[in-house]
Design a binder for these strands. Sequence first.
DNA 1: ATGAAAGCGCTAACAG
DNA 2: CTGTTAGCGCTTTCAT
Lengths: 336, 336
Amino acid sequence: MKHINIKDLALELNLSVSTVSKALNDSYEISEETKNRVLETAARLNYVPNPYASSLRGRKSKNIGVVIPEVADSFFSLAINGIESVAKTKGYHVLICLTHESFENERTILKEFQGGRVDGVLLSVSTETTQCDHINDLIANGLPLVFFDRACDEVETAKITTDDFESAYKATTHLIQQKADRIAFLSISKSLSISNKRLEGYLKALEDHDIKADQKYIIDCSNDAEQNYLLIKKLLQQKNKPNGIIASVEKLTTPIYTACKDLEMKVPEELKIVCFSNLEIATILNPSLTTITQPAFEMGKMAATLLFKALENRNFSLVKEDFMIQSALVVRDSSG
Amino acid sequence: MKHINIKDLALELNLSVSTVSKALNDSYEISEETKNRVLETAARLNYVPNPYASSLRGRKSKNIGVVIPEVADSFFSLAINGIESVAKTKGYHVLICLTHESFENERTILKEFQGGRVDGVLLSVSTETTQCDHINDLIANGLPLVFFDRACDEVETAKITTDDFESAYKATTHLIQQKADRIAFLSISKSLSISNKRLEGYLKALEDHDIKADQKYIIDCSNDAEQNYLLIKKLLQQKNKPNGIIASVEKLTTPIYTACKDLEMKVPEELKIVCFSNLEIATILNPSLTTITQPAFEMGKMAATLLFKALENRNFSLVKEDFMIQSALVVRDSSG
DNA sequence: ATGAAAGCGCTAACAG
DNA sequence: CTGTTAGCGCTTTCAT
């Protein structure tokens, strides 16, 4: 089966290419009858337009780029679902690019996007990203960009985030109310804005409850699971070991639970745990895990909706379009 | 910053467009000196080629399509990582399209791909897919396609699968050896080839151990978590309730554990569990979950590698390029 | 070693 | 209402 194009269609129909094009695009210039004929023949010959040819002609690629650190993470995979749900209604496709938490990768991807592969970008920055020239370049080049979850404060564009400060504050307060007084905080990045805000919320809660923050309870985790396991184990073995722990990111759940099991620490009696996590499976852990759950699907959806607003209306400015959505503290047995 | 194209570059360099193009593509016709000048200016002006313009000119879109039921699933997200790892080395991008287990969606996506949006396709079919004309159409249209995990037997093209029959057989045998004699099997689709092979492996293992299969132990699950929970609960409440259970798909883990908890069934004493699952978190469930783990990353990688072979060499035929990789039965406490 | 020109598939002025 | 034509950015003969 040869691939059929608009010229073939025109030939078959004894019409000009432009008439066919207009009919296909439901132009008011074309008679109903012709439209029907064209549509019918197109269907019969299995005509599928080449999106990139339209793209070239000044229109859109009809692709949006989604740049994230990782897919194997329930926050991001749910967010993708949200993004995809709106892209679909707009006839757009989603190009997913993974940075694997590498700044270099992130820069390369955004650079490449400037060639016109995508019409707009949804971005959640890598843990390594400390400066944002590559992002500003992209925007200067005319590509609308919306951050979701992990944003760069310095870049002036729309951001969909959650109340990281407040939710960490709430989680910490919750642990304090559960009688934890030596609470550890596991961070993933010193530069990431969300990580810092969570840390600040934690610190403020301690302060408000007259608990002195202690550096030894604040741990910088890495991207390496084994390494993190060792760090956490060490944390839980020291003198004055913590009796509460807050993990600022989902992937720390496994090392924490594993360490507790290996050290035979009783949860929640000896250690109360809260994780930032969207894992559905939190409910069936034993003890079930208290989580801060972000509205991942909703966030993806909102970010995409905003991006399409900008795409559809060049006058719509993304600057100052910041939305902060609430996360939920879901109390379960691990902090009980 | 205006977007710069090859014409701007040529103007700046006092060269013709074609010379610049050739220099950029490292043609033997161009002198080293000119190449260097061009490359340097391109870098300075931040020139990024438009992939779709090249695409139009008879080359490639440099996109591959990955069509899967769902991203929020550890098998698929790990497979995506594998796919992406090879796409990246080839300078390709990955367009991820979700069917959400709907045949209609799957058909629409594949149809759309025929317009040239992607150069090749990696597919894992939906649970609803019972006939494969849409896939054959795509292939007939000249797009190479490789199945991974969930394939259609009737379509003649490369398939990367796992030993579904054997692993279900192994899992069942394992449960029998653990003294389970009423073993339930949870299926997700009556049409899906992998689901059926798993079912057959289960049935064969029962037969080989002189256990009579019983329809009431074979459950067809749906796409709806709540529904599945109820089905499982009912299964576990009947007279002669099973003392072993095999779930053919990861997402059934939560409903199973939840049902056990709600019914206060002791695992593994009263019920031994095995799930087909790539959840990292299997280790920290309580009891830790015995799984059949598929080499998801590897499978994605192999599927992509095969696809690129076909893309790079039009003579390379994907027919008969079938690979079956072994899954691992990882015994943990839930079947202990 | 370099350049002119055609054309990939499509859309959009502009004419008729 | 329909057709002619130019051109989107790029590659690729075919000259020079």
